[in-house]
């Protein structure tokens, strides 16, 4: 109950932040501009719109997650709003979890707005198979899962580091997360056992962001051409992975936050 109260306040704080509107506006402009780009590629309009649309949702969602996530806790410390609040009957883990859920809800709403923008763009384009709209949903769901992980990463850093450094760390891990599978491959080729071991550790520690890209425009658009266009088993595994990974990060954030002094 208290967690939800804290979450609601975080959501309200987020939606009164200008940065959010700027990012959403940009995302919607990107998605709209895909109509123009689509015209240049005769016959592939839908693919261009879906590619650009899903890409925009992912990129701008990540930007929102990082920009708001890194200051989520830091701002409360910097502005000293946390002093009065933590003297109330709440546990520190409730505070952190509430903040996290509040930002996740903000992201959910934002992604929904961007997704609506994408669907309207497809509708405007016209001549798109009906199942395409339905197939967009699992792809957007995966994006949300990846945002859950990115937000948790930003949250961990924001409990002990400045926004600039947190942004750097989070962004670095997010990029590294795209090449994670390659890293494992590289390790397997390596001769020295030490290197093999090291790449394996990195593989598990760094978030596997590429996991969240198991659905792309081909699965969405050409459903009829493939027997099983969307791999629901993979979807299930990625869900488990996303929840576990974020859960562990949230636990780390709580641990750091619970131990620290508020000087």
């Amino acid at each position: 109950m208290k967690i939800l109260t804290i979450g609601r306040n975080t959501f309200r704080e987020n939606i009164r932040d200008k940065i959010l509107y700027n990012l959403i506006l940009f995302a919607l402009l990107m998605i709209l501009s895909s109509i123009a780009l689509g015209q240049l590629t005769l016959g592939h309009e839908a693919k261009v719109i879906v590619d650009l649309g899903l890409g925009s949702i992912s990129i701008f969602g990540t930007l929102i997650a990082i920009f708001i996530g890194i200051s989520l806790v830091y701002k409360e410390l910097e502005k000293r709003t946390v002093y009065a609040l933590l003297a109330k009957p709440i546990h520190r883990w409730e505070f952190i979890t509430g903040k996290y859920l509040g930002l996740l809800f903000t992201l959910l709403v934002n992604v929904a707005i961007m997704a609506a923008g994408l669907m309207l763009t497809l509708l405007y384009q016209g001549g798109i198979e009906r199942y395409t709209y339905l197939n967009l949903l699992p792809a957007i769901y995966l994006t949300l899962l990846s945002l859950m992980v990115t937000t948790a990463l930003a949250l961990v850093f924001s409990t002990f580091s400045t926004p600039a450094l947190s942004a750097l760390f989070t962004f670095f891990l997010w990029v590294a997360g795209h090449f994670n599978a390659d890293l494992l491959e590289f390790g397997n080729l390596a001769k020295t056992p030490g290197l093999k071991w090291l790449t394996r550790v990195f593989y598990y520690v760094i978030p596997n962001i590429s996991n969240f890209k198991v659905i792309d425009s081909r699965n969405v658009i050409q459903a009829a051409a493939y027997f099983e266009p969307i791999n629901y088993a993979a979807l299930g595994w990625v869900t488990v992975y996303g929840i576990l990974y974020s859960g562990i990060l949230l636990g780390i954030a709580v641990l750091i936050f619970s131990r620290r002094d508020f000087k």
């Binding site: 306040n9 309200r12 704080e13 009164r16 932040d17 502005k79 000293r80 709003t81 002093y83 009065a84």
Partner: peptide
């Protein structure tokens, strides 16, 4: 209990 911190500051969007 109640607590007023020194030079308090609260969420300025509220």
């Amino acid at each position: 209990i109640g607590y007023l911190p020194e030079n308090p500051y609260f969420y300025d969007h509220l």
